[in-house]
Design a protein around this nucleic acid. Sequence first.
DNA 1: GCACACTCTTGCACGCAGTGCAAGCGAATG
DNA 2: CATTCGCTTGCACTGCGTGCAAGAGTGTGC
Lengths: 181, 181
Amino acid sequence: MRSLIAQTAMDLFAEKGYDDTTVEDVAAAAGISRRTLFNYFRNKEDLALGGLTEQGELIAARLAERPDDESIWASLRSSFGVLQEIDATFERRLEIVSLLFGNDSLRAGHAEKQARWQELLAPLIAPRLPESDHRMLKARAIAATAITCLQAAIEEWVRRRGDADLFDLYDAAIEAVRRTT
Amino acid sequence: MRSLIAQTAMDLFAEKGYDDTTVEDVAAAAGISRRTLFNYFRNKEDLALGGLTEQGELIAARLAERPDDESIWASLRSSFGVLQEIDATFERRLEIVSLLFGNDSLRAGHAEKQARWQELLAPLIAPRLPESDHRMLKARAIAATAITCLQAAIEEWVRRRGDADLFDLYDAAIEAVRRTT
DNA sequence: GCACACTCTTGCACGCAGTGCAAGCGAATG
DNA sequence: CATTCGCTTGCACTGCGTGCAAGAGTGTGC
């Protein structure tokens, strides 16, 4: 039900734009009342960003399964692979991501949700780090950096209208961060 | 004028909380009308986050002045030093940052504004990178990572209620990202 | 068949954010 | 003194989000 509504919402957003689509519109298109829609989604933003929370959980679940002896960076990269397995056509994916980057408040919400992934990933990373001061901070920094590089890669991917392999871009970003003097 | 209003707003936010303070309240406390307040600030969020845009510009200005032969990471670290020079007492600083992290939409706006710093810093970083594919992407990734580590450090700093040196935390974060295998 | 409880939906009224418009007000200029 | 320009303000309106209470539909026990 939630996903049905979200689906309809995304269609409308893609068609008319986020700002020019009212919650009323979405509710009508989904055949429910405005009030009921707010029973399923906390706010309008959630209609567009709800999927991100779920994605974060998928990534965390995948990360938890990676072997302990694998390098952290390799584990993270591999965990992000979940995103490629999501069921959506190429065009749809491009459409969605463009939508998220095309609106100020959505971009903000998007950034925040991804920042929250940090909270899910860091506890899985910390145990793998050597004993030292600030271990949790370090784990958070690593998670945040990986996510940030992923985000930069996605942004570049959109900029090129999908004409590049996302993970090539991600690798380039990580390489720059870790190897540049 | 802008800063006077922002000042009053921050006082109220700190006293009653962001959500429990209406724009009306702020306008009244500043001795202007609600409508006029919106002439100075695009929205309520800007009352709390307006300073961040300016900070980003300060950092970029500082970065532009750093010598070319300095390592990028050293230049970035040094540029962030501007933040320490901002005129505010220790308590005030803690109060402000706590406010920003204590509210969902403010956290989102905060994350977004800092992400925008990326756009300012990346063009200054790119020319310093060796020729290669995806140079701009790499510059953005480096900027984003530095900012992200700064943010993680600030978060940790708040968590400890200011009982740590911000740059020690920042260094720990960067070291973890760049040295961890 | 009937009463009861439970859940899901809905309409209504409300508060607050943000905007367009047009009127007002004061200061500087000619 | 009249005009103009910029800044302020009130007003009305749209849209988001919420609390509340009234249905509507379904299952349970008697």
